[in-house]
Design a protein around this nucleic acid. Structure first.
Length: 291
DNA sequence: TCCTCCCTGTTC
DNA sequence: GAACAGGGAGGA
């Protein structure tokens, strides 16, 4: 469920709790949660310091640097890249906290500037009920070679509506499928795709490449606005999403279409229609949204 | 470009 | 006890 606004909120709530801390070690409770760089987690991560937490698309990244005078061993920072998929969460627990039912990875964190490797460690849990989420560890050059990372499209909030519109225009698929494709635009999932299409009055099944450019620019402007509003409200909590303090978001209260199948359209009161488009449940107003 | 599959808890 | 939620890999 975490899409761009939710991952952004997790980054801003997690960063103050972990930046500056040193990794003592990593406990892998579910081996398949680590999809790349198992050896790096076991051998390189211990002793490295969390330098930065950032987001790219729906991915949350911990940037780690080495200790002392040789900050990076000549290989640059080590990146722990997480995809939360539907149910991934982060939470920092006090020393000694036992794993929860759905805890998949535990990062034991020494306090900043701690010289005592036996000090009590706070424990950063990566929990994921449905086990779709994953962690991959890379040094920078290998991260750039990862095809999914390399293929990510523009960050919608750091790009103009015109650039996004051009990206939509190139797709031969439905506009909904284009929005969900991370190569077209990074970080959009099912919720914000439906909401942006409603705001732009575009039918989700409309073919992207045949929509007028002005409608695509308008869609991009609405997408940017809605993502920013969702970030301002700390994301949307449908079922499982919580930030790194355990708090829910508020943007779910502003949905116009997502989860509102058969309910009246906020604009024209016609019943909202549900459909399967691009393999995803889709809700739209058959009256307001056109091709 | 589209379809199926992965996975588990919740809802009907 | 089936349907559903859904991002992305992989195959058709």
């Amino acid at each position: 469920m975490p899409e761009l606004p939710e991952v952004e909120t997790i980054v801003t709530t997690l960063a103050p709790q972990v930046v500056g801390s040193v990794m003592r070690d990593v406990e892998v409770l579910l081996p398949r949660a680590v999809q790349a760089g198992e050896d790096l987690l076991a051998q390189k991560v211990p002793g490295m310091r969390v330098n930065r937490v950032f987001r790219r698309a729906k991915l949350l990244v911990l940037e780690l640097v080495g200790p002392g005078a040789s900050p990076d061993d000549g290989l640059g920072p080590l990146f722990l890249v997480f995809h939360l998929k539907m149910t991934g969460r982060f939470f920092v627990h006090p020393p000694g906290t036992a794993p929860l039912k759905h805890t998949r990875l535990i990062f034991n964190l020494l306090p900043p500037d701690c010289k005592n490797a036996k000090a009590d460690c706070r424990r950063l849990f990566f929990d994921d009920m449905r086990t779709f989420g994953y962690c991959r560890a890379f040094y920078g050059p290998d991260l750039k070679k990862w095809s999914f990372w390399a293929g990510l499209g523009p960050e919608p909030l750091e790009t103009s509506a015109e650039v996004l519109a051009k990206s939509f225009k190139k797709r031969g698929s439905s506009i909904k499928s284009a929005l969900l494709d991370q190569r077209t635009v990074a970080g959009v999932g099912n919720i914000y795709a439906d909401e942006a299409l409603f705001m732009a009055k575009i039918h989700p099944a409309a073919k992207a490449s045949t929509l007028p450019t002005r409608k695509l620019v308008n869609l991009a402007e609405n997408l940017k606005a809605i993502l920013q509003r969702a970030i301002d409200e700390c994301g949307s909590s449908i079922r499982d999403y919580r930030d790194a303090h355990g708090n829910a978001g508020a943007f779910q209260n502003s949905f116009n279409v997502y989860g509102r199948k058969d309910q009246p359209c906020v604009t024209c009161s016609a019943p909202l229609q549900g459909a399967k488009i691009a393999g995803r449940s889709t809700v739209f107003c058959p009256n307001c949204q056109t091709s």
